[in-house]
């Protein structure tokens, strides 16, 4: 079974919610990125989203943009990330999800990417700017290779489309809980519980993780109480930025992740 499905089922069986951490692959370089990811896995993170750096990240705020720029400046490429994933797989079985814009995958070749990603040990793909009606062969390739395909649903996604997106999602559905780009915000939207309850009606049992703007353990716990999991990205990426020269950067990021994971895991179903 796909590691994402296995993790979500194991959490559900013990009545717990998922803590999902986003980190930009190759930030500040692949070597330190590998150490950070391994440390996150040990800190109790349930699923790690690996952001693939891209020159024109139109859905990302300044923190993740800067991380992508650092990763690209350090020479990070798609093959480099896949090689890092293969190395990580000797150390950890934490589910790894590629969070990516579509052009680097098109250039690599969608089918070739899916097959190399599965071989390296990636568990799923979240294509940020590839709505299901475009596809480019991704869905069938992912299904054939046993990779999850995680779709985004936004607050303004209409009901019929929620159903389409949910039915074409596997692993989990990523609910973008607010308008705007990635980045920390002070509060969760007031109608989050209503929105997620509505999404669940369309989800056909696929778990719903909530992200965009979540930074503190309190916010993560509140989001996890509503959904099946909470995603924290920019907050951790900012820590990488602040401590990237520090030899302890992996431990610093992992400490914060452990606190977030603990807060999420305390939430009971």
């Amino acid at each position: 079974m796909n590691r994402i499905d296995a993790t979500m089922q194991a959490l559900a069986a013990t009545g717990r919610k998922a803590f999902v951490a986003y980190i930009t692959a190759g930030d500040p370089d692949l070597e330190r990125s590998e150490a950070i990811i391994a440390a996150l896995a040990e800190a109790g993170v349930d699923i790690i989203e690996l952001g693939f750096p891209y020159s024109d990240p139109m859905a990302d705020g300044p923190v993740i943009q800067a991380a992508g720029e650092r990763a690209l400046a350090a020479g990070t490429t798609v093959p480099g990330i896949l090689a890092m994933v293969a190395r990580l797989r000797r150390r950890t079985q934490v589910p790894l999800l590629a969070f990516t814009y579509i052009n680097p995958l098109l250039r690599y070749g969608v089918e070739r990417f899916v097959s190399d990603a599965a071989a390296a040990g990636l568990d799923g793909i979240l294509p940020l700017d590839l709505p299901p009606e475009q596809d480019r062969g991704l869905a069938s390739a992912a299904t054939a290779a046993g990779l999850a395909l995680v779709r985004l649903v936004a607050p303004n996604t209409v009901p019929a489309r929620r159903r389409t997106l949910a039915r074409s999602s596997s692993g989990f559905i990523y609910y973008v809980c607010r308008y705007g780009v990635t980045g920390e915000r002070s509060a969760l939207p007031e109608d989050l519980a209503e929105q997620v309850a509505d999404l669940r009606r369309h989800a056909g049992g696929v778990p719903v993780c909530i992200g965009f703007g979540i930074a503190s353990p309190q916010q993560a716990a509140a989001a996890a109480a509503i959904g099946d999991g909470a995603v924290v990205g920019s907050h951790l990426v900012q820590l990488v930025a602040e401590h990237r020269q520090d030899p302890q950067v992996a431990a610093i990021v992992a400490d914060r992740a452990a606190a977030l994971a603990a807060a999420v895991h305390e939430v009971a179903r």
Partner: peptide
């Protein structure tokens, strides 16, 4: 052509 955007922009 086509429409390759994050989901938030689709309804708009």
């Amino acid at each position: 052509g086509g429409c390759y955007v994050p989901e938030t922009l689709i309804p708009v």
